[in-house]
Design a binder for these strands. Sequence first.
DNA 1: CGCATCTTTGCGTGCCACGCAGGTTTTGGT
DNA 2: ACCAAAACCTGCGTGGCACGCAAAGATGCG
Lengths: 204, 204
Amino acid sequence: MSGLRERKKAETRAALSWAAIRLTVTRGYDAVLVEDIAHAAGVSPRTFNNYFASKAEAIAARHLDRSRRVADALRGRPAGEPLWAAIEAAVHSAWAPGPEVEQAPPDAHDEWVAGLRVMLAEPALQGEMLRAGAVAEAELAEAVAERTGTDAAHDLYPHLVAAAVGAAAGAATRHFLRAERPEPVGQLLSAALAQLAAGLPPPN
Amino acid sequence: MSGLRERKKAETRAALSWAAIRLTVTRGYDAVLVEDIAHAAGVSPRTFNNYFASKAEAIAARHLDRSRRVADALRGRPAGEPLWAAIEAAVHSAWAPGPEVEQAPPDAHDEWVAGLRVMLAEPALQGEMLRAGAVAEAELAEAVAERTGTDAAHDLYPHLVAAAVGAAAGAATRHFLRAERPEPVGQLLSAALAQLAAGLPPPN
DNA sequence: CGCATCTTTGCGTGCCACGCAGGTTTTGGT
DNA sequence: ACCAAAACCTGCGTGGCACGCAAAGATGCG
């Protein structure tokens, strides 16, 4: 049932999460009160905690939503496709930049990234981001189990694959944030997944 | 300089972390106040926050200390040893059970594990645990870079390897906690690392 | 239209993280 | 052995956060 009710909830949730991110990136984590976020989203402070258990969770919500899409995308890949090809395609489709990124003014891009760096340096945020990744990994493990004929409840394999994919995604994004003149995230992701599937042989 | 000062600090830190874990496992996360932990460790409540920024951090401290040892152990491996053999040895030495586990009464083992499960279900804890793993991964990446002649500041490779090792460790421990009659953690770790180094090929 | 259900909101409570300042212990140099 | 500097512990106070509860409002369904 996609009634008015659910649509409104999703909108409020997105508005809160987006406001939390925007305010934190521009102002800094502890210069933003929950009250500010709620007000920016046009909702009462008490309602904030009906949607999120903490300020950090609100900020990590976009990351969570994005990461969750990987499992869905994997289920949408053709059945004959090899596992790692399907995973690569799924990861790319989930991480593709949406329209709201394309339409952002590119001149503000640099200070946005700088703000992001500061924001992600916050300990409380790091934990919540990683937790979001872990939740997404659990769902991905389910999808991997379906595709490989393994059992998510009893076998290690699907969880291991999901965790490895999460590790690749994490390493790629952190590399992106660390580098001064970084490659696009898409390329980094491809490289990371390819090395994973090759067994991470040492260079030389 | 290993003076009285540092030894005492380390002892207080360990006492606080241990008290936090013990109380939480037996009583539940939010039935334990910071005040209780401080008191159990023979220190004032205010002092607690001189050692840890949060209750969750105190509980995760043991995990952090353990995880950090992997990087050190890797540096201690002979230079000629292949990378993945050295990593496996390092992981095993860091995860070997200490004497305080051996001497614990085995009849209380089951309710301890049950308490652990409940504790690790707490969202705030999960984030902090994962964060501890991430810190350890950063240090492991340094050690991997040294060993492979790569550069942790510019190359993706060492971070990718470290993240993959972390993923394997995480998947193995979660599998251990999930299963009713689990294999020993050491075996699970070996299996996970072996599959990683083999490129995680799909079964059959 | 009208009842059942879900949401929002205001209020109140207990806990937590941390700045600050004063007293105490450890350290290293003489 | 003494003394000054540095590090540490502690009590107090403050601002903020998460959440239980109950009343008011919005929505869905017959």
